Simulated assay, not measured.
Amino acid sequence: MKTIFELKQDLATIGNQIQKTNNEITQKAADPKTAMDDLNQLNQTKGDLQQRFDIIKTQLDQMEAEQRASLEKGQFSNSNDPKQKVIDAKAELIRKTMAKEAVSSDVYQALGDDSTSNGGKFLPKTVANDVISEPTVKNQLRGLSTVTSIPNLEIPKVTFTLDDDDFIADMETAKELKAKGDTVSFGRNKFKVFTGISETILLGTNTNLVSTVEANLQSGVAAKERKVAFAETPKAGEEHMSFYDATVGIKSVVNADLYKAIKAAIADLHEDYRENATIMMRYADYLEIIETLANGNATLYTAQPEQILGKPVVFSDAAVIPVVGDFSYSHFNYDINALYEQDKDVKTGINLFVVTAWFDHQIKLASAFRLAKKA
Rank of each mutant, 00 (worst) to 15 (best):
V248D: 09
S242E: 01
G220F: 11
A236R: 11
F243G: 05
D257Y: 03
Y244I: 04
S252F: 13
E239W: 01
S242D: 01
A222N: 13
P234F: 06
P234G: 03
E232S: 13
G237S: 06
G220M: 13
E225M: 09
Y244G: 09
E238R: 13
S242K: 02
H240I: 01
I250S: 12
T247P: 02
G237E: 02
Y244E: 04
V248Q: 11
D257F: 06
F230C: 12
S252D: 15
Y244Q: 07
E225Y: 07
A236L: 13
A246D: 06
R226M: 09
D245Q: 06
S219Q: 04
A223V: 09
I250P: 09
N255I: 08
F243S: 03
P234A: 03
D257M: 06
F243N: 02
K251M: 13
V253M: 07
R226D: 07
A236D: 11
F243R: 02
A223F: 03
G220W: 08
P234T: 00
S242F: 08
V248S: 10
D257C: 07
A223S: 06
A223L: 07
Q218R: 14
S219G: 12
K227W: 15
L258F: 15
K235R: 12
I250R: 11
P234R: 02
K227F: 15
F230G: 07
E239S: 01
I250L: 10
M241G: 11
L258D: 13
R226I: 10
A222S: 11
S252L: 13
A246W: 03
K235P: 11
V253K: 04
A246Q: 08
K227D: 14
E238L: 15
V221L: 11
A229K: 04
E238M: 14
E239N: 01
V221A: 13
V228M: 08
N255E: 14
G249D: 02
P234K: 02
E225T: 06
N255Q: 12
E225F: 04
T247L: 09
S219E: 05
Y244A: 12
S252R: 15
V248K: 11
V254P: 08
K224L: 08
K235T: 00
H240W: 08
H240A: 06
E232R: 10
T247V: 03
A231S: 02
Y244M: 11
A231K: 00
M241Q: 15
M241P: 04
A236Q: 12
D245E: 05
V254H: 14
A223K: 10
Y244H: 10
S252W: 14
N255S: 10
S242W: 06
P234S: 03
F230Y: 15
G220N: 13
V254A: 11
M241D: 10
A229W: 06
A229N: 05
H240P: 01
N255P: 05
G249R: 03
K235N: 12
Q218V: 13
T247Q: 12
V254R: 15
M241I: 01
V228F: 09
S242I: 00
E239P: 00
A236E: 13
K224D: 06
